[in-house]
Write a protein that binds this DNA or RNA. Structure first.
Length: 554
DNA sequence: AGCGCGGGCGCC
DNA sequence: AAAGGGCGCCCGCGCT
């Protein structure tokens, strides 16, 4: 396959290396160059998709494949199956220091620092050599491709944004909080609740946002609580509790998804959060702006498809237990995973008495619960599903011994110490703390293998779905069915209404393809819950894993 | 005034 | 004896 690497040169020029041939292009001509070469289906190689792709999308250009050198390097440096020394070169330090570009900061056209003109073709050669020399070249190659495809998806979703009805959002805010307050002031309905709390506690000057003040006022009113969490307060009988809980809820809405949030993240009828592919240690995405990871239920009604368009919302039921079944090759668990409800499958299998017990046991195994109800379920289920439960148990033991673990496709986890928040020297001096630290790393490792492989499945899913959606229409990305949101195990596709059923089918096909790609030896079902809706708020919200007991649908 | 921290919350 | 993973964001607070 053709690879074309792009490197920024001083003076608004770009070096393109295409099959060893160097071309120097004016930056202004880059879009035309990419557009002209794209029909050959090359893999574009660049330092950071978030730097190169947004301007191309602005110009109406979509690329099919890329290799993101920053993500690739990050992965290969930590992958147990790769020899990181093959990545060492004169420019190493600069490559290692590369930080993700953020959409608000179009570094492609401005900054001129030491990381600006690193030769993409040379780094590409190093990374390819590292993959080729690996004993697991195919898996690493797949992982790099999936990771890079994810980066394309992220840039496209930020480009298109989630259709957003500011009028509905503001109506919601108005109903719950009152009119938009002047800067620095509380909305009237929030202030009214603060007043109720103050009088119920006989604390006229109380600022309910201050924990020390609140704790003090509660104590003086005869309420002894260790903290001010909602779950703690709910168990307390006192007239202040009801308005206080409501205050907390509305204060969160006001500060996190209120008017100021909309000013910053909603423009031209689109909510554009910023995604960071592989932003978390396990390979899951994170977000560095807009709060894409907590798209709160409270404001979802404002996400409404354009006229004549709809959303297809799809999520995977119990992604991580299914992934665990696949990667461990546990035939019994794979059998329970046939059909739409893995937990019910376990009940039908006779492994466990109830759906809830099944869920408790699996979550416990993946998170490292060993006590309480969850811990007891783990013990019982280990006998029934030895391969699956053994895999996470083994990962936990490796972690406790300070050994690294890896995902199915070969992502490595950071060594003990780096991943822990505990101060290493303190821990050394204190054996109990050291034990806690190792246990904690064990739980982290246990979860890493499943969460990380789940993230790999999801990447394969959206990478394939992206291409399937592209083929359903014509014109630029936003004129065809396209992804507008992705969160761990859920996608939202914005599509012309007449294609909705086709999109639903494609989402399922992509899920099946991702499963087949990752788990060749054992067929695993990845059923989707899908809804076709006008507003995101109307999508069904079936329980998924983890996250447990979401109230079922509406 | 600006920074880092931790509590508290919300998402999976 | 007890032992639940990954994130981001907001706030108040204590520090410089």
């Amino acid at each position: 396959m053709t690879r074309i690497s792009l490197t920024r040169l001083p003076g608004d020029r770009v070096l393109a290396v295409d099959a060893g041939l160097e071309h120097v292009i004016e930056l202004a001509d880059l879009s035309a160059y990419v557009e002209g070469r794209e029909p050959d289906g090359p893999r574009w190689v660049w330092d950071d998709t978030a730097r190169w792709y947004p301007p191309l999308l602005e110009a109406g250009i979509r690329v099919e494949r890329c290799h993101d050198l920053r993500l690739g390097r990050q992965l290969l440096r930590r992958a147990p199956a790769a020899d990181a020394s093959l990545l060492v070169a004169e420019e190493s330090e600069h490559w290692d220091r590369l930080r993700p570009a953020v959409p608000s900061d179009p570094a492609l056209f401005s900054v001129d620092d030491s990381t600006e003109h690193l030769r993409a073709d040379l780094e590409d050669a190093r990374q390819r050599a590292a993959v080729a020399a690996s004993s697991e070249a195919p898996r690493l190659g797949l992982l790099l491709a999936a990771e890079s495809a994810g980066a394309l998806v992220a840039a496209e979703m930020t480009h298109t944004g989630v259709p957003w009805r500011t009028d509905i959002h503001e109506r919601l805010l108005g109903e719950q909080l009152g009119p938009r307050p002047p800067r620095g002031a509380r909305p009237v309905l929030l202030e009214a609740l603060a007043g109720e709390v103050r009088s119920a506690l006989a604390a006229p000057g109380l600022n309910p946002d201050s924990r020390p003040e609140l704790l003090g006022a509660l104590r003086r009113a005869g309420v002894e609580v260790p903290d001010t969490r909602a779950s703690t307060l709910r168990a307390v009988e006192h007239p202040a509790v009801v308005p206080l809980l409501r205050y907390k809820q509305l204060a969160h809405l006001f500060s996190t998804n209120g008017w100021a949030w909309a000013d910053q993240w909603v423009k031209d009828g689109r909510f554009r959060p910023s995604y960071q592919p592989a932003g978390s240690i396990t390979g899951r995405w994170s977000s560095n702006g807009g709060g894409a990871l907590s798209f709160p239920v409270q404001v979802r009604p404002a996400a409404v498809a354009d006229d004549g368009w709809v959303f297809v919302v799809a999520d995977v039921a119990q992604l991580e237990p299914r992934v665990l079944a696949g990667m461990s090759g546990d035939r019994a668990l794979a059998k329970a995973a046939q059909g739409t409800d893995l937990y019910q499958g376990m009940v039908d299998d006779g492994a466990v008495g109830s759906r809830n017990d099944a869920k408790l046991g699996l979550l416990g195994a993946m998170y490292g619960a060993t006590s309480g109800e969850s811990g007891r379920m783990v013990a019982g289920l280990t006998r029934r599903y030895p391969a699956a439960f053994g895999l996470v148990e083994e990962a936990a033991r490796a972690g406790e011994r300070g050994l690294g673990v890896r995902t199915l496709l070969g992502r490595g986890c950071p060594p003990l110490g780096e991943a822990s928040t505990t101060d290493v020297d303190t821990a050394r001096a204190d054996p109990e703390s050291e034990t806690r630290r190792r246990r904690s790393y064990g739980r982290f490792s246990r979860n890493f293998v499943v969460q990380g492989t789940g993230a790999e499945w999801a990447l394969c899913w959206i990478a394939d779905l992206r291409n399937r959606l592209w083929r359903l229409g014509a014109g630029p990305v936003e004129a065809r069915p396209h992804l507008v949101f992705f969160l761990h195990d859920e996608v939202v596709v914005h599509t012309p209404a007449h294609l909705a059923d086709v999109v639903v089918a494609e989402a399922s096909h992509a899920a099946a393809a991702a499963g087949a790609l990752l788990f060749r030896q054992l067929s695993i079902d990845f059923p989707l819950n899908t809804s076709i809706v006008r507003s995101y708020a109307d999508a069904g919200k079936p329980g998924s894993v983890p996250g447990a007991d979401v109230t079922p649908g509406r």
